[in-house]
Protein backbone atom coordinates (compact mmCIF):
# COMPACT_ATOMS: atom_id res chain seq x y z
CA UNK A 1 0.00 0.00 0.00
CA UNK A 2 1.58 3.21 -1.10
CA UNK A 3 -0.32 6.01 0.56
CA UNK A 4 1.68 9.03 1.40
CA UNK A 5 0.34 10.35 4.67
CA UNK A 6 2.71 13.24 5.02
CA UNK A 7 2.61 14.77 1.57
CA UNK A 8 2.42 18.53 1.78
CA UNK A 9 -1.22 19.48 1.69
CA UNK A 10 -2.54 23.02 1.32
CA UNK A 11 -3.80 24.74 4.43
CA UNK A 12 -7.33 24.13 5.59
CA UNK A 13 -9.40 26.83 7.23
CA UNK A 14 -11.97 26.40 9.95
CA UNK A 15 -14.18 29.42 10.39
CA UNK A 16 -17.59 30.53 11.52
CA UNK A 17 -19.26 31.64 8.33
CA UNK A 18 -22.24 33.92 8.03
CA UNK A 19 -25.22 32.66 6.05
CA UNK A 20 -26.22 35.18 3.39
CA UNK A 21 -29.19 33.30 2.06
CA UNK A 22 -30.74 29.88 2.30
CA UNK A 23 -33.43 28.38 0.11
CA UNK A 24 -35.35 25.15 -0.14
CA UNK A 25 -35.28 23.77 -3.67
CA UNK A 26 -37.41 21.19 -5.45
CA UNK A 27 -36.93 17.47 -4.83
CA UNK A 28 -35.73 17.93 -1.23
CA UNK A 29 -32.65 19.95 -2.07
CA UNK A 30 -31.44 23.07 -0.28
CA UNK A 31 -29.04 25.80 -1.24
CA UNK A 32 -27.07 27.93 1.16
CA UNK A 33 -24.89 30.95 0.42
CA UNK A 34 -22.13 31.72 2.91
CA UNK A 35 -19.47 34.40 3.30
CA UNK A 36 -16.11 32.66 3.78
CA UNK A 37 -13.35 34.60 1.98
CA UNK A 38 -10.57 32.33 3.26
CA UNK A 39 -12.11 29.19 1.79
CA UNK A 40 -13.62 30.84 -1.30
CA UNK A 41 -10.22 32.18 -2.29
CA UNK A 42 -8.65 28.72 -2.23
CA UNK A 43 -11.50 26.51 -3.44
CA UNK A 44 -11.05 24.46 -6.60
CA UNK A 45 -13.86 22.75 -8.54
CA UNK A 46 -14.69 19.35 -7.05
CA UNK A 47 -13.52 20.19 -3.55
CA UNK A 48 -15.87 20.09 -0.61
CA UNK A 49 -16.37 21.67 2.80
CA UNK A 50 -17.15 19.95 6.06
CA UNK A 51 -20.01 21.68 7.83
CA UNK A 52 -20.92 21.44 11.49
CA UNK A 53 -24.66 21.00 11.98
CA UNK A 54 -26.30 23.62 14.18
CA UNK A 55 -27.13 22.14 17.56
CA UNK A 56 -28.64 24.89 19.64
CA UNK A 57 -32.12 24.38 21.09
CA UNK A 58 -33.78 26.88 18.82
CA UNK A 59 -32.85 24.85 15.77
CA UNK A 60 -33.89 21.58 17.31
CA UNK A 61 -37.26 23.09 18.11
CA UNK A 62 -37.54 24.32 14.56
CA UNK A 63 -36.83 20.83 13.43
CA UNK A 64 -39.69 19.53 15.57
CA UNK A 65 -42.13 21.45 13.48
CA UNK A 66 -40.83 20.08 10.20
CA UNK A 67 -43.47 18.15 8.33
CA UNK A 68 -41.38 15.06 7.85
CA UNK A 69 -41.38 14.31 11.55
CA UNK A 70 -44.99 15.30 11.84
CA UNK A 71 -45.73 12.77 9.12
CA UNK A 72 -43.84 10.05 10.92
CA UNK A 73 -45.39 10.71 14.31
CA UNK A 74 -48.80 11.92 13.04
CA UNK A 75 -48.43 14.88 15.41
CA UNK A 76 -45.56 17.05 16.60
CA UNK A 77 -43.28 15.09 18.92
CA UNK A 78 -42.57 16.65 22.30
CA UNK A 79 -38.92 16.91 21.31
CA UNK A 80 -36.86 15.91 18.30
CA UNK A 81 -36.05 12.21 18.56
CA UNK A 82 -32.41 11.50 19.34
CA UNK A 83 -29.78 14.07 20.11
CA UNK A 84 -28.36 16.79 17.86
CA UNK A 85 -25.93 15.46 15.24
CA UNK A 86 -22.23 15.35 16.10
CA UNK A 87 -20.25 14.73 12.95
CA UNK A 88 -19.62 17.35 10.32
CA UNK A 89 -21.40 16.84 7.00
CA UNK A 90 -19.28 16.84 3.84
CA UNK A 91 -20.94 19.07 1.23
CA UNK A 92 -19.49 19.88 -2.18
CA UNK A 93 -18.83 23.42 -3.29
CA UNK A 94 -21.63 24.42 -5.66
CA UNK A 95 -20.42 27.84 -6.73
CA UNK A 96 -17.84 30.38 -5.71
CA UNK A 97 -19.08 33.93 -6.02
CA UNK A 98 -17.49 37.33 -5.83
CA UNK A 99 -16.75 38.99 -2.46
CA UNK A 100 -15.75 35.69 -0.84
CA UNK A 101 -19.10 33.96 -1.04
CA UNK A 102 -19.51 30.25 -1.35
CA UNK A 103 -22.66 28.43 -2.34
CA UNK A 104 -23.49 24.93 -1.16
CA UNK A 105 -26.14 22.69 -2.68
CA UNK A 106 -27.18 19.56 -0.83
CA UNK A 107 -29.97 17.06 -0.62
CA UNK A 108 -31.79 16.83 2.68
CA UNK A 109 -31.48 13.16 3.56
CA UNK A 110 -31.40 13.08 7.35
CA UNK A 111 -31.34 15.01 10.55
CA UNK A 112 -28.05 16.84 9.97
CA UNK A 113 -28.87 18.12 6.50
CA UNK A 114 -32.38 19.00 7.67
CA UNK A 115 -30.95 21.20 10.42
CA UNK A 116 -28.57 22.82 7.95
CA UNK A 117 -31.43 23.56 5.58
CA UNK A 118 -33.25 25.30 8.47
CA UNK A 119 -30.50 27.93 8.78
CA UNK A 120 -31.64 31.43 7.89
CA UNK A 121 -29.71 34.42 6.65
CA UNK A 122 -27.49 36.07 9.29
CA UNK A 123 -27.13 32.75 11.14
CA UNK A 124 -23.63 31.41 11.58
CA UNK A 125 -22.29 28.00 10.74
CA UNK A 126 -18.90 26.39 11.39
CA UNK A 127 -17.20 25.38 8.14
CA UNK A 128 -13.96 23.45 7.60
CA UNK A 129 -12.39 23.51 4.16
CA UNK A 130 -11.58 23.42 1.37
CA UNK A 131 -11.09 19.67 1.55
CA UNK A 132 -10.14 17.04 -1.00
CA UNK A 133 -8.20 17.13 -4.24
CA UNK A 134 -10.80 18.51 -6.65
CA UNK A 135 -10.95 17.87 -10.41
CA UNK A 136 -7.69 17.92 -12.33
CA UNK A 137 -8.30 20.38 -15.15
CA UNK A 138 -4.87 20.10 -16.77
CA UNK A 139 -4.34 18.16 -19.97
CA UNK A 140 -4.64 18.63 -23.71
CA UNK A 141 -8.37 18.39 -24.33
CA UNK A 142 -10.67 20.92 -25.90
CA UNK A 143 -14.06 19.44 -25.03
CA UNK A 144 -15.12 18.70 -21.48
CA UNK A 145 -18.11 16.43 -20.94
CA UNK A 146 -19.71 16.82 -17.54
CA UNK A 147 -22.01 13.97 -16.52
CA UNK A 148 -24.16 14.56 -13.46
CA UNK A 149 -26.90 12.46 -11.93
CA UNK A 150 -29.25 13.51 -9.13
CA UNK A 151 -27.35 15.23 -6.32
CA UNK A 152 -24.23 14.92 -8.45
CA UNK A 153 -25.21 18.20 -10.05
CA UNK A 154 -23.94 20.03 -6.95
CA UNK A 155 -20.25 20.56 -7.82
CA UNK A 156 -20.86 21.09 -11.55
CA UNK A 157 -21.64 24.81 -11.97
CA UNK A 158 -18.28 25.80 -10.50
CA UNK A 159 -16.54 23.21 -12.67
CA UNK A 160 -18.33 24.37 -15.83
CA UNK A 161 -17.56 28.01 -15.06
CA UNK A 162 -13.87 27.30 -14.53
CA UNK A 163 -13.66 25.22 -17.72
CA UNK A 164 -15.44 27.96 -19.62
CA UNK A 165 -12.85 30.47 -18.37
CA UNK A 166 -10.16 28.09 -19.66
CA UNK A 167 -11.78 28.35 -23.10
CA UNK A 168 -12.86 24.72 -23.22
CA UNK A 169 -16.02 23.58 -24.91
CA UNK A 170 -18.36 22.33 -22.17
CA UNK A 171 -21.08 19.73 -22.62
CA UNK A 172 -23.41 19.06 -19.69
CA UNK A 173 -25.15 15.70 -19.62
CA UNK A 174 -27.44 15.62 -16.61
CA UNK A 175 -30.16 13.29 -15.47
CA UNK A 176 -32.71 13.27 -12.71
CA UNK A 177 -35.81 11.32 -11.69
CA UNK A 178 -38.39 14.06 -12.02
CA UNK A 179 -37.19 17.63 -11.46
CA UNK A 180 -33.79 19.32 -11.48
CA UNK A 181 -33.04 21.08 -8.18
CA UNK A 182 -31.53 24.08 -9.93
CA UNK A 183 -32.37 26.07 -13.01
CA UNK A 184 -30.31 24.30 -15.67
CA UNK A 185 -30.19 27.38 -17.88
CA UNK A 186 -27.45 28.49 -15.48
CA UNK A 187 -25.08 26.30 -17.46
CA UNK A 188 -25.98 28.01 -20.72
CA UNK A 189 -24.52 31.21 -19.32
CA UNK A 190 -21.19 29.39 -19.19
CA UNK A 191 -21.56 28.62 -22.89
CA UNK A 192 -22.32 24.97 -22.23
CA UNK A 193 -24.26 22.62 -24.48
CA UNK A 194 -27.05 21.02 -22.45
CA UNK A 195 -28.27 17.44 -22.81
CA UNK A 196 -30.85 16.63 -20.17
CA UNK A 197 -32.75 13.49 -19.27
CA UNK A 198 -35.55 12.63 -16.89
CA UNK A 199 -36.79 9.22 -15.84
CA UNK A 200 -40.39 10.40 -16.14
CA UNK A 201 -41.76 11.62 -19.45
CA UNK A 202 -41.30 15.38 -19.90
CA UNK A 203 -41.36 17.54 -23.00
CA UNK A 204 -37.95 18.67 -24.14
CA UNK A 205 -36.08 16.09 -22.10
CA UNK A 206 -34.71 12.72 -23.05
CA UNK A 207 -36.89 10.06 -21.42
CA UNK A 208 -34.45 7.72 -19.69
CA UNK A 209 -31.02 7.83 -18.13
CA UNK A 210 -28.27 10.35 -18.68
CA UNK A 211 -25.85 7.52 -19.45
CA UNK A 212 -27.85 6.85 -22.63
CA UNK A 213 -27.32 10.46 -23.63
CA UNK A 214 -23.60 10.11 -23.01
CA UNK A 215 -23.47 6.99 -25.18
CA UNK A 216 -25.31 8.74 -28.00
CA UNK A 217 -23.09 11.79 -27.75
CA UNK A 218 -19.87 9.80 -27.90
CA UNK A 219 -21.17 7.70 -30.81
CA UNK A 220 -21.94 10.89 -32.65
CA UNK A 221 -18.46 12.27 -31.90
CA UNK A 222 -16.78 9.27 -33.42
CA UNK A 223 -13.38 7.85 -32.56
CA UNK A 224 -11.28 10.72 -33.82
CA UNK A 225 -12.79 13.48 -31.70
CA UNK A 226 -12.85 11.30 -28.61
CA UNK A 227 -9.13 11.92 -28.28
CA UNK A 228 -9.57 15.53 -27.38
CA UNK A 229 -12.31 14.89 -24.83
CA UNK A 230 -12.11 14.78 -21.05
CA UNK A 231 -15.09 13.57 -19.02
CA UNK A 232 -16.02 14.52 -15.45
CA UNK A 233 -18.78 12.84 -13.52
CA UNK A 234 -20.57 12.93 -10.20
CA UNK A 235 -23.69 11.14 -9.01
CA UNK A 236 -24.95 7.82 -7.69
CA UNK A 237 -22.39 5.03 -7.72
CA UNK A 238 -24.34 2.84 -10.14
CA UNK A 239 -24.59 5.70 -12.63
CA UNK A 240 -20.90 6.52 -12.32
CA UNK A 241 -20.06 2.87 -12.88
CA UNK A 242 -22.05 2.96 -16.13
CA UNK A 243 -20.34 6.21 -17.13
CA UNK A 244 -16.94 4.65 -16.46
CA UNK A 245 -17.81 1.66 -18.69
CA UNK A 246 -18.95 3.91 -21.55
CA UNK A 247 -15.91 6.17 -21.30
CA UNK A 248 -13.53 3.25 -21.16
CA UNK A 249 -15.19 1.71 -24.24
CA UNK A 250 -14.72 4.98 -26.15
CA UNK A 251 -11.28 5.54 -24.59
CA UNK A 252 -12.29 8.86 -23.09
CA UNK A 253 -10.40 9.76 -19.92
CA UNK A 254 -12.78 10.15 -16.98
CA UNK A 255 -12.59 11.70 -13.55
CA UNK A 256 -15.25 10.61 -11.06
CA UNK A 257 -16.20 12.35 -7.85
CA UNK A 258 -17.27 9.85 -5.19
CA UNK A 259 -18.99 10.13 -1.86
CA UNK A 260 -18.65 8.10 1.29
CA UNK A 261 -19.73 8.38 4.91
CA UNK A 262 -17.06 10.51 6.56
CA UNK A 263 -15.71 10.94 10.05
CA UNK A 264 -13.10 13.64 10.34
CA UNK A 265 -12.71 14.72 6.67
CA UNK A 266 -9.05 15.39 7.55
CA UNK A 267 -7.62 11.99 6.65
CA UNK A 268 -7.14 10.96 10.25
CA UNK A 269 -9.92 8.48 10.92
CA UNK A 270 -9.71 6.26 7.81
CA UNK A 271 -13.49 5.92 7.68
CA UNK A 272 -14.25 7.16 4.16
CA UNK A 273 -12.34 4.74 1.99
CA UNK A 274 -12.67 3.65 -1.62
CA UNK A 275 -10.91 0.70 -3.17
CA UNK A 276 -8.70 1.77 -6.08
CA UNK A 277 -6.23 0.00 -8.33
CA UNK A 278 -2.53 0.58 -8.48
CA UNK A 279 -0.40 0.09 -11.57
CA UNK A 280 -0.24 -3.64 -11.04
CA UNK A 281 -4.00 -4.05 -11.42
CA UNK A 282 -6.49 -5.95 -9.31
CA UNK A 283 -3.92 -7.85 -7.32
CA UNK A 284 -2.83 -4.55 -5.86
CA UNK A 285 -6.19 -2.87 -5.14
CA UNK A 286 -6.12 -0.94 -1.91
CA UNK A 287 -8.27 1.37 0.16
CA UNK A 288 -7.59 5.09 -0.02
CA UNK A 289 -9.31 7.92 1.78
CA UNK A 290 -12.05 9.71 -0.16
CA UNK A 291 -11.56 12.89 1.90
CA UNK A 292 -7.85 13.28 1.21
CA UNK A 293 -6.82 11.23 -1.84
CA UNK A 294 -10.30 11.91 -3.30
CA UNK A 295 -13.10 12.73 -3.70
CA UNK A 296 -12.05 12.84 -7.37
CA UNK A 297 -10.52 9.65 -8.74
CA UNK A 298 -9.43 8.39 -12.13
CA UNK A 299 -12.45 6.49 -13.48
CA UNK A 300 -10.25 3.64 -14.70
CA UNK A 301 -8.78 3.01 -11.27
CA UNK A 302 -11.90 2.78 -9.15
CA UNK A 303 -12.98 -0.72 -8.09
CA UNK A 304 -16.72 -0.42 -8.64
CA UNK A 305 -18.27 -3.67 -7.48
CA UNK A 306 -16.55 -4.00 -4.18
CA UNK A 307 -17.55 -6.88 -1.98
Amino acid sequence: MKVSYTEKQPRVHCTRAKVVSSRDLPDGFARMKLIIPAIARQAKPGQFVSVLCPTDDRRVRMFNTAEDWAAVYRRKPARAPGSPPLLRRPISIHQVGKNGTLELLFKVIGRGTKLLSCLKSRDHVDVLGPMGNGFDLSGRYDTAIIVAGGAGIAPMPYLAKTLHKMKKKVVIIAGTKDVFPIDMSLFSSFGAELLLSKETRHRGYHHGLCTELLEQYLDKCGRRTCHSVQAFSCGPKAMQHAVAKICSKNSVPLQVSLEQRMGCAMGACMACVQKVLNKQGYSDAHNVRVCTEGPVFDGEKVVWNEK
Binding site: P85, L86, L87, G112, Q260, R261, M262, G263, C269, M270, A271, C272, V273, Q274, N287, E306, K307
Partner: peptide
Protein backbone atom coordinates in the same frame (compact mmCIF):
# COMPACT_ATOMS: atom_id res chain seq x y z
CA UNK B 1 -9.28 -2.75 7.03
CA UNK B 2 -13.00 -3.40 6.74
CA UNK B 3 -15.24 -2.70 3.74
CA UNK B 4 -16.98 0.71 3.73
CA UNK B 5 -19.20 2.24 5.01
CA UNK B 6 -17.09 2.32 8.11
CA UNK B 7 -18.76 5.04 10.13
CA UNK B 8 -22.31 5.82 11.19
CA UNK B 9 -23.76 8.40 13.47
Amino acid sequence: GNPPPRIAE
